[in-house]
């Protein structure tokens, strides 16, 4: 059942991503509408997959890298769908769904079958830590997509290139709003995730901060995100500058999520 749900979700991720990209290329609203429904159904399947795993294993659904990747794809999809309901910017789907698909494919490399776990991760703090941090990551990924689209659209309008791509991209106002909301929520969730992680570290290892490579990278990116939120909320940064900064923040965040493993030893499984 678990693997059936997973495979079905994977297939639908593929279908929706292809549909969204095709709708962008052919400029058919009908295709985009269909893809949105398909994507919504994908989300339902993915949610049931995660719940199924959770109830079957009895502990946190995110304890290894593959589950984390799958979870980020899930969070990204969910937040995109919420934005879609509120702002009607289907074209964002053409940027978000391929990203979710790639994450999910990466997850498929090792997600099925029960992984070995030790006692330290069978704790609710771990679940809170992982779920919040990863959703925060997903929101920053969404902010990054919106920022990229913003920069493209800004350039097109400034260069007086009022053609095909200009027409399909959403308005600058909407893109900036999506970026703003994602950054603020992403930052809040990330903060909760980090706090939960450090509390758990205190319980298990006796210290909040272990000078682990991942912790340092995450703190660094958290500071960058905090700067971004500060500039946006307090200084009133908007548009291009905020877009560049949020792309930078996501890049650093993404590095501390995936890249740290490759270069440094860390106590994090992911």
């Amino acid at each position: 059942m678990e693997s059936i749900l997973f495979k079905a979700a994977l297939a639908l991720y593929l279908v929706s991503a292809v549909g969204f990209v095709a709708s962008l290329l052919t400029r058919r609203v009908f295709l985009a509408r269909l893809s949105t429904w398909c994507y919504g159904f994908t989300f339902v399947l993915h949610t049931s997959f995660i719940l199924w795993r959770w109830t079957a294993s009895g502990y946190s659904p995110v304890v290894n890298l593959f589950e984390a990747l799958s979870f980020v794809a899930w969070g990204l999809t969910g937040t995109y769908l919420i934005f879609q309901l509120v702002t009607k910017t289907r074209v964002l789907g053409a940027f978000v769904s391929p990203l979710a698909l790639v994450l999910f494919i990466a997850a498929s490399a090792g997600i099925t079958g029960a992984g070995e776990t030790d006692a330290s991760v069978k704790n609710y703090w771990v679940a809170v830590h992982a779920v919040f941090s990863l959703t925060g990551n997903a929101l920053f990924a969404l902010a990054c997509c919106a920022a990229l689209m913003y920069l493209v659209q800004d350039r097109l309008i400034r260069k007086r290139k009022i053609h095909d791509l200009y027409r399909v991209l959403p308005s600058l106002g909407d893109l900036d709003r999506i970026n703003h909301i994602s950054v603020i929520w992403g930052f809040s969730l990330l903060t909760v995730g980090i706090v939960a992680g450090s509390l758990w570290a205190r319980v298990v290892w006796g210290s909040h901060l272990l000078w682990d490579a991942k912790q340092i990278a995450t703190l660094g990116s958290w500071i960058l995100c905090a700067l971004l939120v500060h500039q946006r909320v307090a200084i009133g940064w908007k548009g291009k500058r905020a877009a560049y900064l949020s792309i930078g923040a996501f890049a650093v965040l993404f590095f501390s999520f995936l890249g740290v493993h490759l270069f440094f030893p860390t106590i994090h499984r992911f």
Partner: peptide, 21 residues
């Protein structure tokens, strides 16, 4: 009939693409 062909409508279409709703 996708694109505006008067100066007035072009200005409106651009407004929508810049400030949104």
């Amino acid at each position: 009939s996708a694109n505006a062909v008067s100066v007035g409508y072009t200005a409106v279409a651009l407004s929508k693409k810049i400030v949104g709703d």
